[in-house]
Design a protein around this nucleic acid. Sequence first.
DNA 1: GTTTGAAATATTGTTGACAATCGCCAACTG
DNA 2: CAGTTGGCGATTGTCAACAATATTTCAAAC
Lengths: 233, 233
Amino acid sequence: MELRAVPRQNRSLRQQVAETLRSAIIHGELNPGDRLREEDLSDQLDMSRGPIREALRQLEQEGLVASFPYRGTVVADVWGDEVLAVLVPIRATLELYALRHALRRFEEPDFNALGAIVDEMQTAAETGNLARVIELDMAFHRLILERSELFHSLQLWEMISPRMRGLFYRMGPHHTSLQEIAEQHRELLAALRSGDEQLAYATLEEHIAEPRLYARLPRGPEPHSAAGDDDAR
Amino acid sequence: MELRAVPRQNRSLRQQVAETLRSAIIHGELNPGDRLREEDLSDQLDMSRGPIREALRQLEQEGLVASFPYRGTVVADVWGDEVLAVLVPIRATLELYALRHALRRFEEPDFNALGAIVDEMQTAAETGNLARVIELDMAFHRLILERSELFHSLQLWEMISPRMRGLFYRMGPHHTSLQEIAEQHRELLAALRSGDEQLAYATLEEHIAEPRLYARLPRGPEPHSAAGDDDAR
DNA sequence: GTTTGAAATATTGTTGACAATCGCCAACTG
DNA sequence: CAGTTGGCGATTGTCAACAATATTTCAAAC
């Protein structure tokens, strides 16, 4: 498994490492159970172990890896039914609550920013760029959380969003069409712009539940055994 | 603000620091906005800045502090309406889903473990030991999450539980009586033991919503549906 | 008196070396 | 031969010094 160096500059090494590993895990370059040795990573990414350690701890909080004292860190399983069953309602709780606060603050520039995201999503959808569509999807919803100025909601959203992203990547190929995703966001934006709060909430709620999107996933009541225990810190 | 040294031995310094700070924040020895300088902490707790940094990052993920690149870390506000409005439904989602899986695994020893927690809670309640009651309350629910063997649910629960604990400490003095808390857990346990899954779910759901417990708070937010609210933070 | 900008300061970000702990396995003991 | 113990290699945990960055200070110009 080869990890190439850092993406954008001008951010802390910890953030760069976290993003690199997150991406590798979500894209399947790293698979559940794969070991992540701090020294290997520090060699490959050409930095000391300090930032690596901090990034691994962060990914642990995001549920992407599991680590055990003095024994190491492994990639966790982000693709069980559990993620779907638990994350969708949590996401709905957060976004609906945040929307209530964000809507009051939204001005023309905010709607335009959302519109720009939707436009770019449309372009990405037409060229079949799944990764870009997903990133823009996340950006759209994150903007609502940001504008709500709710510290804990945004913080928790950041905590579950990496898992959601993993879910999207897994479901993407099963979705009927990328254009439909863009179209749904356009409708959602229209509802937000309408000034009808009830309509906005209802549209967002339905958008998140999104029956078509999850239709193809295996939905069994079978308990899913996770990649490892948690050593309650 | 004086922080005295470590609690239990035989755990990593990071965990000790995290617990010390968590406790100080929740008990109000550290207040929102207070600055947390890595060097000060490393002096006070007599260790290097490494473990301190990692503990601060963890608390950041738990929503207890907020940090800014090259600018420092401050204690966050864990006492807004937001915490209540968002955390209660999230907690309900996690615990109800986990209970479904845990109930199948529960055997006599598990029920007895829960029973022992309730008994001790009763004792703590009779002596007016709020802190102990709260810890046992958390332990009761955590045990359900543990037995569900759901990696992500437990992980997310650990993420929100520090905020819940803060909420409990704030509400404790307003609660009608500690005995009532213990009694409620005894009833909940009976429902779990009954073998009637529907009863178990319903009792847990009501237990979490817990109208009496939140009655005294400044406002009664309506979590999941559209309604009036206020500015937070 | 206000503004500007560069140096000084305070604070976090990063590093490489050293210490502690764990799992494994061979040697030992009964 | 089963079970225990003690060393060994692998890996994470911790430390103290150094680098990078943001904020503050303060003098000079307008």
